[in-house]
């Protein structure tokens, strides 16, 4: 008899938790939306990436919401640190763009590398990658999120990627520029391409 009760209790706990999970998720979303509207003075534009509710971890093991970056011009690229072919060149492209920025602009700009391989790219690994590549100034940032949030973020950047072996990915080579409110203003596609327009786009946004 006791056994039966235990089983029944187990059963009901299981059914309830399965049901509540779905509801809780929804409630969470609503709460987040509520908090957002309260905290922000000006409303986020509809096309802003700050409408994405995801949490990310930096190379310094800090958790941030994308929205915490509001007010900066963002230059973003998606990479993975074990990548041997394209990513070093993408990183070089980012560095080239950064070099062309006047010193005083760098305070208002973030150059962000988002990992498409969050399982391998732990905060520790991102941190040592930043050190190896001498990208330790405040305007450099590395982010990793959950596989789902990473996939979602990539869709917003129109970046495609696919894991093709345990250590390798194929991926698009796109550098994106976002204005202070998180709205996409410019993209450059390809490796080692002429970055004049990208640099101009960043300068325009920072000086706005």
């Amino acid at each position: 008899m006791i056994m039966k009760k235990v089983v029944l209790i187990m059963l009901s706990v299981f059914l309830f938790s399965a049901c509540n999970n779905a509801e809780k998720k929804e409630a969470d979303v609503k709460e987040e939306v509520a908090v957002n509207t309260k905290e922000i003075k000006e409303e986020i534009p509809e096309l802003s990436i700050y409408n994405l509710p995801s949490t990310w971890t930096t190379q310094d093991n800090e958790n941030i919401q994308l929205e915490d970056l509001r007010g900066n011009v963002l230059v973003m690229v998606m990479i993975y640190t074990s990548c041997k072919a394209a990513c070093p060149r993408l990183i070089a492209d980012m560095r080239n763009i950064e070099k062309q920025m006047p010193e005083e602009y760098l305070d208002k700009t973030k150059f962000i590398m988002v990992s498409i391989d969050p399982e391998t790219d732990t905060p520790q690994r991102l941190n040592s990658f930043a050190k190896e590549n001498v990208m330790e100034d405040d305007h450099w940032m590395f982010l990793r999120g959950t596989p789902e949030d990473t996939r979602e973020f990539a869709t917003v950047l129109a970046v495609s990627y696919k894991q093709i072996s345990p250590i390798d990915f194929s991926h698009s080579n796109i550098i994106s520029v976002f204005d202070e409110d998180g709205v996409l203003v410019h993209q450059q596609e390809g490796l080692g391409v002429d970055n004049t327009e990208t640099v101009e786009a960043i300068k325009t946004e920072v000086s706005n």
């Binding site: 072919a85 394209a86 996939r151 990539a154 869709t155 129109a158 970046v159 495609s160 990627y161 696919k162 093709i164 194929s170 991926h171 698009s172 080579n173 596609e189 390809g190 490796l191």
Partner: peptide, 16 residues
């Protein structure tokens, strides 16, 4: 993961 499909010339890394 519809955006895992790599088709087209823009992706020089497209080894699949």
């Amino acid at each position: 993961d519809f955006n895992s499909v790599m088709i087209g010339g823009e992706s020089r890394q497209d080894s699949t």
